[in-house]
Structures are given as C-alpha cells and as structure tokens.
Computed example of a mutant assay.
Amino acid sequence: MRVLIVDDAAFMRMMLRKILETAGYEVAGEAVDGNDAVAKYFELKPDLVTMDITMPAKDGIEAVGEIRAKDPKAKILMTSAMGQEPMVRAAILAGAYDFVVKPVEEERFLKAVSRAAK
C-alpha cells in the first residue's frame, strides 16, 4: 500500500515515514500543507493519505473535502494534536476515514492504517 504523508512539521513526517516503512508500507510522497496535499494526491495517486488538520495555507479538513469531491473513494486518515470532538466530527464529515490523535501512538496508528488497507 502506497501512503502520502501530509504534515507541516518535518519531524512528524519523518516519524510517520519511519513507522510506515518499518511496517512494510511504501511512502509515495510527502506534502507540507493542504494545497500541496491536493496536488500530490492527484499526481501520486496513493492508496491512503495521512492528513494533519492544522496547517498553513489550507488546513487538512479543507484538503480532505477537495480530494473527496474529486475522488469519493479516497482513504484519508486524519492526524492532529487537537483531538477535540468538534475537530474529529468536522474531519469525518469532510470525508476522513479515521482520526488518530498526536502524539501518534504507533500501535493505534498502524491499526487505523491496516483497517484502511482492507
């Protein structure tokens, strides 16, 4: 399974890449904000996107809506330090598949990735 990692924090992208690659997933690419995420999604055509919510330029919820409007089958896993219920609800309503709170717990993250792969 090919994964696109979207996060404005380089250390977070690096950490998620390490977790995914160690578990045998292929990282198709990385994006630094919502605009970059939308462009790279359609360029790279990954099987799954891990999407941060709070980013500059365009946030993750807007990016999810844009991607899902053009590709309703897109699988997007939200990641955010803001685990408040309204953010989770907004992410799911925008079309996110699941939500993982940061700091990302490796086991929980991989379970969500594995569910998306099925």
Rank of each mutant, 00 (worst) to 15 (best):
L77F: 05
T22G: 07
F109T: 08
V113D: 02
A23I: 04
V27D: 05
L93I: 08
G65K: 12
I5C: 02
M82R: 10
M1Q: 08
A57L: 12
T79W: 00
P86G: 12
A69G: 14
A69Q: 15
P72M: 00
Y25H: 14
P103Y: 14
K58Y: 04
R68A: 12
V100P: 08
L48V: 08
A57V: 15
Y25D: 08
L44D: 10
V3S: 06
A69S: 15
V32I: 12
G65V: 07
A63E: 10
A74P: 09
P46M: 11
D59G: 02
A37F: 06
F11I: 13
V100N: 07
G65T: 05
G60N: 00
I5P: 01
A9W: 00
R68I: 15
F11C: 00
R13D: 01
I5E: 01
D59A: 02
A74I: 09
G95E: 08
R17H: 04
M12Q: 11
F42H: 13
G83F: 11
L77W: 06
E66N: 08
L20N: 05
A91D: 06
M82Q: 10
M12H: 01
G95W: 08
A116K: 08
A39Q: 14
F42I: 11
E26G: 06
V38A: 12
E85Q: 15
I53R: 01
I76W: 10
D47F: 05
M1G: 10
P46V: 13
M12E: 06
